[in-house]
């Protein structure tokens, strides 16, 4: 299991454990983290699973693919250097303990 902390824009936080192989979006979605909408259920079609990643973990993530790159240009909240779409990040043991900030809005 991989432990992730999600922090909502209003400061509320959730500590969630999810199996390796799931996406960073799914772990949040199953547990009802509100700041992730994930309308398309992880198909990289909606950009409503936008998150800001803890800088210390950025280089442990898979690179941004071409579809994610285009979708990140269209997020509702501003794109920052640490912006990612959480459905495109698979949980691995290396990500254990990661903290993820959620944007003000997804839509």
């Amino acid at each position: 299991m991989v432990k992730i902390t999600y922090i909502e824009a209003d400061g509320r936080s959730y500590e969630i454990e999810a199996p390796e192989g799931w996406s960073l979006m799914e772990a949040a979605f199953h547990n009802g983290v509100e700041g992730i909408e994930a309308e398309c259920g992880g198909a990289c079609n909606c950009a409503t699973c936008h998150v800001y990643i803890d800088e210390n973990y950025l280089d442990k993530l898979p690179p941004i693919g071409p579809t994610e790159e285009e979708m990140l240009e269209c997020t509702a909240a501003e794109r920052r250097p640490n912006s990612r779409l959480s459905c495109q990040i698979e949980l691995t043991a290396e990500l254990d303990g990661m903290v993820v900030d959620l944007p003000e809005t997804q839509i």
Binding site: E26, F29, N31, G32
Partner: peptide, 14 residues
Amino acid sequence: TRLIQRNAEFYVKH
């Protein structure tokens, strides 16, 4: 299990 929308605790909690 990956198809499930929200887990069982979610419904209880809310």
